[in-house]
Deep mutational scan, measured.
Amino acid sequence: MTYKAILNGKTLKGETTTEAVDAATAEKVFKQYANDNGVDGEWTYDDATKTFTVTE
Protein backbone atom coordinates (compact mmCIF):
# COMPACT_ATOMS: atom_id res chain seq x y z
CA MET A 1 0.00 0.00 0.00
CA THR A 2 1.25 3.50 -0.80
CA TYR A 3 1.21 6.14 1.93
CA LYS A 4 1.94 9.84 1.53
CA ALA A 5 3.41 12.40 3.90
CA ILE A 6 2.99 16.16 3.58
CA LEU A 7 5.70 18.15 5.34
CA ASN A 8 4.87 21.69 6.43
CA GLY A 9 8.10 22.47 8.23
CA LYS A 10 9.72 25.81 8.89
CA THR A 11 12.74 24.84 6.79
CA LEU A 12 11.36 21.97 4.70
CA LYS A 13 8.08 21.79 2.80
CA GLY A 14 7.05 19.06 0.41
CA GLU A 15 5.64 15.59 -0.05
CA THR A 16 7.05 12.08 -0.05
CA THR A 17 5.60 8.60 -0.41
CA THR A 18 6.48 5.14 0.85
CA GLU A 19 5.29 1.60 0.30
CA ALA A 20 4.38 -0.06 3.60
CA VAL A 21 2.36 -2.99 4.90
CA ASP A 22 0.32 -0.77 7.23
CA ALA A 23 -0.10 2.78 8.51
CA ALA A 24 1.99 2.17 11.63
CA THR A 25 4.98 1.10 9.53
CA ALA A 26 4.55 4.08 7.20
CA GLU A 27 4.33 6.42 10.20
CA LYS A 28 7.69 5.17 11.52
CA VAL A 29 9.31 5.74 8.11
CA PHE A 30 7.86 9.25 7.77
CA LYS A 31 8.72 10.30 11.32
CA GLN A 32 12.31 9.16 10.82
CA TYR A 33 12.46 11.05 7.50
CA ALA A 34 11.09 14.20 9.14
CA ASN A 35 13.50 13.86 12.07
CA ASP A 36 16.46 13.37 9.70
CA ASN A 37 15.44 16.61 7.97
CA GLY A 38 14.92 18.65 11.15
CA VAL A 39 11.12 18.75 11.00
CA ASP A 40 9.35 18.31 14.35
CA GLY A 41 5.70 19.20 14.72
CA GLU A 42 2.12 18.02 15.11
CA TRP A 43 1.22 14.89 13.14
CA THR A 44 -2.19 14.00 11.73
CA TYR A 45 -3.31 11.02 9.64
CA ASP A 46 -6.21 10.73 7.19
CA ASP A 47 -7.07 7.05 6.68
CA ALA A 48 -9.31 7.78 3.69
CA THR A 49 -6.41 9.22 1.68
CA LYS A 50 -3.59 7.32 3.47
CA THR A 51 -1.92 10.68 4.11
CA PHE A 52 0.16 11.83 7.06
CA THR A 53 0.70 15.55 7.61
CA VAL A 54 3.24 17.18 9.90
CA THR A 55 3.05 20.90 10.66
CA GLU A 56 5.64 22.89 12.59
Results as ranks from 00 to 15, higher is better:
G38M: 06
N8G: 04
K10I: 14
Y45H: 01
K50C: 05
N35F: 15
D47G: 08
V54K: 01
D47N: 09
Y3N: 02
D36W: 08
T25M: 11
I6G: 02
A24C: 13
V21G: 09
A5N: 03
V39R: 02
T17Q: 10
E19L: 14
N37V: 14
V39T: 03
T51S: 05
L7N: 01
V29N: 06
E27N: 05
A20G: 03
G41H: 02
T49P: 00
E19Y: 15
Y45W: 04
K4C: 07
M1W: 13
E42N: 10
T2E: 08
E15L: 11
A5E: 04
T25R: 06
L7V: 09
E27Y: 15
Y33K: 03
A24M: 12
V39P: 01
K13P: 04
V39I: 14
K10W: 11
D22H: 04
G41L: 04
E42C: 11
G41Y: 05
K31G: 02
N8F: 11
T25E: 13
D46I: 04
L12Y: 15
G9F: 14
G41R: 02
K28I: 11
N35V: 14
Q32T: 08
K10H: 12
T2L: 14
T51H: 01
L7D: 01
W43F: 05
G9Y: 06
N35G: 09
Y3H: 03
D22G: 03
D46K: 03
T49M: 06
A26Q: 00
K31E: 03
Q32V: 08
V39H: 04
K13S: 09
Q32A: 11
T55S: 09
G38F: 07
T55L: 06
M1F: 15
A20D: 03
D40E: 13
K50T: 03
G14N: 07
T18W: 08
G38A: 06
T17R: 08
D40Q: 14
Q32M: 10
E15M: 13
A5H: 03
E15V: 14
D22I: 01
Y45E: 02
K13N: 08
T25S: 13
I6Q: 05
T44N: 08
A5T: 04
T16Q: 08
G38Q: 07
G9L: 14
A23E: 07
G38N: 09
A5C: 15
K4W: 10
Y33A: 03
G38Y: 06
Q32E: 08
A5F: 15
A26T: 01
T16I: 15
K13T: 09
T18A: 08
Y3G: 02
D40K: 13
T44A: 09
M1K: 12
D46C: 09
D40Y: 15
A23H: 08
A34C: 12
G14Y: 14
T25Q: 12
E56V: 08
L7Y: 13
A20Y: 02
G38E: 06
D46H: 06
Y33H: 04
E27T: 04
V21W: 12
T49N: 08
N8C: 14
K4E: 03
K50L: 11
V21E: 11
E15I: 13
G38L: 06
V39G: 03
T51P: 00
M1I: 14
G14H: 12
T18G: 02
T44D: 08
D36E: 13
F30N: 00
A34Y: 06
K31H: 08
A26V: 01
A48H: 10
M1P: 07
